[in-house]
């Protein structure tokens, strides 16, 4: 690559051990993520995906190694400041039930005393970006939205501070297959439009391969392979990766078998 881009996130031998005797949940992970990349983290339950993501915005601190964001070691930055520079979306969304959609999206900029009108118009703009009509939805409470609509609001809330990095932990895990596909496509569109760096955790191999420009495959806290979907499928670096790909093929051949009948 000639026109070298900035390194947005650098993991340097990052480990996390929750207690002295426990096995490390994240085990010496090293990786570099360039600005504007869409990265997915794939692995089975308990392999350390969430832990790695939470260390990236200092919800957790590593027990070993360093995490560097745009050249800055985040252990030297106040955790709240780190988080305010990043978007964060989780599966359970976590919209506050006592606030309207608009209030949920604008709570943080308002707490930071940003100009109300600017904040408001940006909120409306973001609602449109996630395909929710502001006039219809801004004044609703979260309980008056479907799960898919709530996650759109969750995305808008994360985009509010115009962060350079977006962290998403199984954002569509609780959403039906059809809605999930359209949300995935919208995420790709938002990525194209905003050129932010996306880091998305999933245990769905199809989702990981579809969304990720490169995919991090993890198992038992280790990073097994970090490459483009193409290279991973062509050259699986590990028996676990091979098994993962085989499982996807088996699923696909089931569907093909059904079609042939």
């Amino acid at each position: 690559m000639n026109n070298r881009r900035m390194i947005a996130i650098e993991y340097e031998q990052v480990s996390k051990q929750f207690s002295k005797n426990a096995k490390p949940s994240v085990d010496r992970v090293s990786a570099q993520i360039e600005e504007g990349e869409f990265i997915t983290i794939l692995g089975s339950s308990g392999c350390g995906k969430t832990t790695l993501l939470k260390m990236t915005n200092r919800l957790l601190d590593p027990s070993g190694g360093r995490i560097i964001l745009f050249g800055q070691d985040i252990s030297t930055v106040d955790p709240v400041t780190v988080r305010r520079r990043m978007g964060y979306v989780i599966q359970q969304i976590g919209l506050l039930p006592h606030m309207t959609v608009e209030e949920n999206i604008t709570i943080l900029p308002k707490l930071m005393k940003q100009d109300r009108e600017t904040v408001r118009s940006r909120a409306r703009q973001l609602l449109s970006m996630v395909q929710l009509d502001p006039d219809t939805y801004a004044a609703r409470y979260p309980s008056e939205l479907s799960g898919g609509q709530q996650q759109r609001v969750g995305l808008a809330r994360a985009l509010m501070p115009d962060p350079k990095i977006m962290l998403l932990d199984e954002p569509f895990g609780a959403i039906d297959a059809i809605t999930r596909i359209s949300l995935q496509n919208e995420l790709l569109r938002i990525h194209r439009e905003t050129k932010k760096t996306f880091l998305l955790v999933t245990h769905d191999i199809n989702e990981a391969m579809k969304l990720g420009m490169r995919v991090m495959i993890m198992d038992k806290g280790r990073l097994l392979q970090f490459d483009t979907p193409h290279n991973i499928i062509r050259h699986p670096a590990d028996p676990f990766v091979e098994a993962l790909i085989r499982s996807a093929y088996e699923q696909q051949s089931f569907w093909e078998g059904v079609q042939d009948d």
Partner: peptide, 27 residues
């Protein structure tokens, strides 16, 4: 108060005090 509520509010950058005022107490 569900832990995920606190996690998401903390994740978008609320301080402990803001968390008490805008998440814990209202919930």
């Amino acid at each position: 108060v569900p832990p995920f509520m606190l996690e998401s509010a903390k994740g978008i950058g609320m301080t402990e005090w803001e968390l008490l005022l805008h998440v814990r107490f209202p919930l």
